[in-house]
């Protein structure tokens, strides 16, 4: 396995190199580009760690939405961004503390018990009763459903927080931060051709998540990226923040999740329990609604507060 080890060592070095560049780059823009490249490579690392579900999430978020977000932020920084750097004393102290933390963690990694504890056997043992083939989806939607439910609420909450940054007079308007002032022909063509294909990929990721790597987060993220593309090209307009329809879409996922969870009191014997006979259709219904809600939430998160055109 020395070959694989060499490959992984190369990958790890590249990642560290890009991380160092991201930290020390002279300009914010350079750092953002470094971070985006870093994101690509981390997706590869997840594959090497046999976590393809995670890799999909990282790739969808990292190469699509994060880039739009960070590049947009970097472009709006003031040109005299050269704020006072901290003195050597603080930098030295920070360096020592950070190095100590890193060294301590490295030692902990080396001293982790062998073999590592695992819940994989328990998690897979009960999967068939849920009608699922992907244990990660099983964890997300059944065993630890509460985390997923609360997390989908966190997305809604992040959006409320974002909208609350609007100016009072802009409330009820449309988020307008993404739309390009003068989208070129090439961009418009891309936004006309790519989204239908991306929609297929997004639905596929959600659908295949029951048996293979994929799921609501990954599918929703891809859908959101496609929507963002059409927003940037000016082919679609984001909804008004006051609209009830868009809010219904935003809470559809968590609300259906919660409703089926409450029904679980009677159908499955406990909150968030699925009845043995109908587990799979219920799970797929939740996943479908979650995919939609996540897509809308992520898209709107990128679109910014209402009336944010600068």
């Amino acid at each position: 396995m020395s070959l694989a080890l060499a490959a992984d060592a190369g990958l790890a070095l590249l990642i560290l190199g890009l991380a160092v560049w991201t930290t020390i780059a002279r300009t914010a823009f350079g750092a953002v580009i470094g971070f985006m490249a870093y994101g690509f490579l981390v997706a590869l690392v997840w594959v090497r760690l046999a976590a393809v579900d995670v890799a999909l999430t990282e790739a969808a978020l990292g190469s699509g939405l994060t880039g739009v977000l960070l590049l947009g932020a970097a472009a709006r920084l003031p040109r005299d961004a050269a704020a006072a750097r901290p003195g050597w004393g603080l930098r030295l102290a920070a360096g020592v503390v950070s190095a100590a933390v890193a060294a301590g963690l490295a030692a902990v990694v080396l001293l982790l018990p062998v073999p590592g504890p695992t819940l994989a056997p328990v998690a897979t043992a009960t999967l068939p009763t849920l009608g699922l083939g992907n244990p990660v989806t099983g964890v997300l939607i059944a065993y630890r459903a509460i985390d997923t439910l609360l997390e989908s609420v966190v997305l809604v909450l992040a959006l409320i927080g974002l909208w609350s940054l609007a100016r009072d007079e802009d409330w009820g308007g449309r988020p307008d931060a993404l739309r390009a002032a003068n989208p070129g022909a090439a961009l418009v063509l891309l936004a006309q051709v790519l989204p239908p294909l991306g929609l297929l990929v997004g639905v596929h990721l959600f659908w295949t998540g029951a048996i293979a790597p994929g799921g609501a987060f990954q599918g929703g993220t891809v859908l959101a990226a496609m929507w963002v593309l059409t927003l940037v090209a000016g082919l679609t307009r984001p909804p008004r923040v006051g609209g009830r329809g868009v809010r219904l879409l935003l809470v559809a996922g968590p609300a259906l999740f919660l409703a089926i969870g409450v029904a679980g009191f009677w159908l499955g014997g406990a909150f968030l329990a699925y009845p043995a006979a109908d587990a799979k259709p219920l799970i797929l219904a939740i996943e479908a609604a979650l995919t939609l809600s996540i897509a809308v939430a992520l898209g709107l998160l990128l679109a910014g507060p209402p009336g944010a055109r600068e």
């Binding site: 190469s63 947009g72 002032a181 891809v222 990226a225 593309l229």
Partner: peptide, 17 residues
């Protein structure tokens, strides 16, 4: 997914600046 989103960085780059 990576191929699908490959153009995003460039899109963000040219539209946000």
């Amino acid at each position: 997914v990576l191929a699908l989103l490959a153009a995003f960085a460039a899109v963000a780059f040219v539209t946000q600046r």
